[in-house]
Simulated assay, not measured.
Amino acid sequence: MASFTRKAIIESFLKLLNERPLNKITIKDIVEDCGINRNSFYYHFEDMSSLVEEIMVEEADKIIEKYGDISSLEECLCVAIDFAVKNKKAVMHIYSSASREAYERYLNRVSEYVVTKYIDTFVDIPAKEEDKEIIIKFFKCELIGYILDWMSDGMRYDIRNQVRRICELFEDTTRIAFERSAGKL
């Protein structure tokens, strides 16, 4: 029963968040929407910020679990973007609120996972461990920056097409960096 209530709270919150900004949603709105009392909300979440944080953590966990075996960097990047596209208004409301840090932590976690998984799966060139960490951080930061730029522009353009093009343009960049680290270039 507890997980049903928790799920109802999250669904009501996301529904409301797709309708209006975060600062216009109260706990009262959420509990009325899903037909529970305030105590039930506080049993599952400390406050509105913890609700936002837990949603972002769960979404990151879902992506990591669902896409453990990736076939391409492009596929993973598009999966990471899908949540934002599917919940565009909600994500923009979080992005424009005091809870923006929760979304940025989600984006950081998913981006680091995607880049690390890609490198571990597709790059078989031995490199110094410190170089590998630098390469992962570099591509993770590039990805996060690109997504945040897209969001600051109101998510108005088709980022999936641009991600595909980025993957084409920078296809061998990771391999070259690893070859340099291994002293092959």
Rank of each mutant, 00 (worst) to 15 (best):
M1R: 10
M1E: 09
I9N: 06
E11H: 06
K15C: 13
L16F: 04
N18D: 15
E19I: 06
R20F: 06
L22Y: 11
L22T: 07
K24D: 13
K24V: 03
K24M: 14
I25T: 05
I25C: 13
T26I: 03
I27G: 07
K28I: 03
D29F: 04
I30Q: 10
I30C: 10
G35P: 05
I36E: 11
N37P: 00
R38S: 10
N39H: 13
Y42D: 15
Y43M: 10
M48Q: 14
E53T: 08
M56L: 00
V57E: 14
E58M: 01
E59F: 10
K62R: 08
I64R: 14
Y67N: 12
E74C: 10
E75K: 08
L77Q: 14
L77N: 14
C78P: 03
V79N: 00
A80I: 01
I81A: 05
D82F: 03
V85H: 00
V85C: 08
N87S: 01
N87K: 06
K88W: 01
K88Q: 04
K88E: 02
K89C: 02
K89W: 03
V91A: 02
Y95M: 06
S96P: 02
S97H: 03
S99T: 00
S99A: 11
R100F: 02
E101Q: 11
E101V: 13
E101L: 15
A102L: 09
Y103N: 07
E104D: 13
R105H: 06
Y106Q: 12
R109E: 14
R109F: 12
S111N: 15
Y113D: 00
Y113P: 00
Y113M: 00
V114Y: 01
T116G: 05
K117E: 01
K117Q: 01
K117M: 05
Y118L: 03
Y118A: 11
I119R: 09
T121W: 04
F122W: 02
D124F: 06
I125T: 07
I125N: 05
I125P: 02
P126F: 13
K128N: 11
E130K: 07
E130S: 07
E130D: 01
K132A: 09
I135E: 06
F138C: 05
F139H: 15
K140H: 11
E142P: 03
Y146A: 11
D149T: 04
W150F: 01
W150M: 04
W150K: 05
M151P: 03
S152V: 00
S152P: 00
D153Y: 06
D153H: 04
G154I: 02
M155R: 02
Y157G: 09
D158P: 04
I159M: 14
I159S: 13
R160M: 06
N161W: 08
N161C: 14
R164T: 10
R165Y: 07
R165G: 04
E168T: 06
E168A: 12
F170P: 05
F170V: 08
F170L: 10
E171D: 08
E171V: 07
D172G: 07
D172A: 00
A177R: 15
F178T: 12
F178R: 12
E179H: 01
G183F: 12
L185R: 13
